[in-house]
Simulated assay, not measured.
Amino acid sequence: MSQPHAYSVEEREALYRAIRERRDMRHFSGGEVADTVLQRLLLAAHQAPSVGLMQPWRFVRVCKPALREQIHQLVEQEREATADALGERRDEFMRLKVQGVLDCAELLVAALPAGRDAHVFGRRTLPEMDLASLACAIQNMWLAARAEGLGMGWVSLFDPQALAELLHLPAGAKPVAVLCLGPVAEFYPQPMLVQERWAQPRNLSELLFIDQWGALRDEN
């Protein structure tokens, strides 16, 4: 039965298509992102839900080439450290392309602001809900970017303190994501880590429990 507030079939399919075809992109083809499009994407992020309406997202648009290069170097340092921590999978990991900081049209850093402890609503027992809210904003931008035909990649390989100092973040603020955004030659037909045989996704049926953890079906 169709719900009275449902979108049209075409509109729903467009939404589910964006969700289905969104990819964490690492390969970019240069070019540019029109300012009007960038503003739409940032507004989509800003319209995300947030716990207690705290809106804990801050975005730094990186425009200076020298600063972009410095961020690239931070990512490379962490890439080497991560590879060392992976032990026997080190060489396999080093063959993966894990970021497009120097190749993307736009580079943004998503961060949590200082003073988050003042927001108690919804965070008294779950203080990490500020991070969850920021993740919702990033996901909004990601889906909107896919609908606009632009690729976006979330890079988390960096030392947060080093990046915070590089961007002159105030004490207590924390960078969470380096976001690579821009035109791509094509979207991966499946997640890149699946294509590269690094990992395999799990089926939803393995992750949905009934009434208690680990119960995959109703036993009654």
Rank of each mutant, 00 (worst) to 15 (best):
A44W: 01
M94D: 02
R95I: 05
A83I: 02
L53T: 07
L216A: 13
Q161N: 08
L102N: 08
W213P: 01
S2E: 07
D117L: 11
D35L: 12
L216P: 06
G30Q: 03
H168I: 07
K64I: 12
A81T: 12
E186L: 15
N140T: 05
R202K: 09
E148S: 14
M152G: 02
E11C: 08
E69S: 08
V155I: 11
L86S: 03
N140D: 00
A34K: 10
R95H: 08
L15M: 06
M54I: 04
E80W: 08
V37A: 01
A164Y: 09
V178F: 03
K174S: 13
P175W: 07
Q77W: 05
L166E: 01
L42D: 01
Y16D: 04
L42P: 01
P189A: 05
I138V: 14
E11I: 08
G87P: 04
V9W: 11
D211L: 13
G153E: 02
P183S: 06
L150I: 04
L193Y: 08
E186N: 07
R61C: 10
L67C: 10
E219F: 08
R12L: 14
D91I: 03
Q73C: 06
N203T: 09
F28S: 01
S8G: 14
E80L: 15
F28N: 00
F158H: 02
W213C: 07
L41Q: 03
G52F: 13
G172T: 07
F59V: 15
R79G: 08
L67N: 00
A162D: 02
A66C: 09
G87S: 04
R197A: 09
A66E: 13
V51C: 15
L107K: 01
L181T: 04
L43H: 12
S2P: 07
T82Y: 11
A34G: 10
V75F: 14
F121S: 14
L169N: 00
D84R: 14
Q139G: 02
A110Y: 04
V51Q: 05
E106F: 07
C180F: 03
E196C: 06
I19H: 03
N203Q: 10
S50Y: 00
A147E: 15
V51W: 05
G115H: 04
P49L: 02
Q55P: 03
N203I: 10
